[in-house]
Design a protein around this nucleic acid. Structure first.
Lengths: 142, 142
DNA sequence: CCATTCAATGCAATACATTTGCATTGAATG
DNA sequence: CATTCAATGCAAATGTATTGCATTGAATGG
């Protein structure tokens, strides 16, 4: 959840036009406490005003490309989307429940990943390090 | 690459029938030094003897379920498959090149992940911790 | 032996998530 | 007012994986 981010400012900072749809997509992602699938985002947006599915995909691509949004892979087939690391959002691992498909954010320090050495020595370009914990969530364990 | 694993033994240990197709799938995965997609595996198998695409998917599901094989998510849409952790294969992170789609294995200690605390305190079941480094590989950088 | 059963496999159709190609719209610019 | 161009929409296509149902062949019991 993000009460600090101003979505219009984020778009401006990335030199992107601030269209209604882009702001709406950012709001849905930013106001949520865990990552959402493109379908989740589309459905939420459709509930209060029409938007095309393809538009959602295109906006997501754009936001990912400009690093406002993070595309997160799951143990399932769809990607999930969350706010990209910025002043208000630190990189953190996720937990994916393979039973219900829910993805949760873990605290940035719940898991200690030291990748400094790799960044220095890797013979290519590193864009990000994604850490995902897979299993079955508390709810589904009952 | 695995010169140590005996694929028939692995199947036996998991109490699975040792069919030709299962052994062939395991061989393709085990003989390769980096994870492969289902399509890669299917194509390799088709080259020397016929097999159905669905059979490959089903065998992969089975092997993943019985933890002989690891299903690895990429920054792209297809899953990749590699040998699951066992006596000869230690868990390790992967590098995914988003330009060419090639996935490489990093050495188990190229990146230091300490998840002990999480395993102890997490209020659910943890099956695995997947670490993936995304970027552009040496070759594609040229 | 033959009949039955059951897992493994094959084939066709379908599902799902995403992408592409092309048409439309509307704001900005000359 | 005409032109341009990015944003969006709609329909169709794509890539990956899954499902349902038919076939096969080895094992089992009569």
């Amino acid at each position: 959840m993000c009460n600090q981010c101003n979505y219009e400012d984020l778009l401006n900072a990335a030199r992107l036009d601030t269209t209604d749809n882009r702001i709406r997509v950012l709001e849905v992602i930013g106001n949520n406490s865990f990552p959402l699938s493109a379908a989740d985002i589309y459905n939420t947006l459709e509930r209060n005003g029409s938007i095309n599915r393809v538009t959602v995909y295109r906006i997501l691509d754009l936001l990912v490309e400009h690093e406002l949004v993070d595309r997160i892979s799951t143990g399932g087939r769809a990607f999930y989307y969350g706010m990209a690391p910025n002043a208000n959002h630190h990189p953190h691992p996720h937990f994916y429940c393979k039973r219900c498909g829910q993805m949760d954010c873990l605290t940035p320090d719940s898991l200690n990943v030291d990748s400094d050495e790799l960044w220095k020595t890797f013979p290519g370009r590193i864009d990000k390090v994604e850490v995902r914990v897979d299993g079955i969530c508390k709810n589904c364990m009952k």
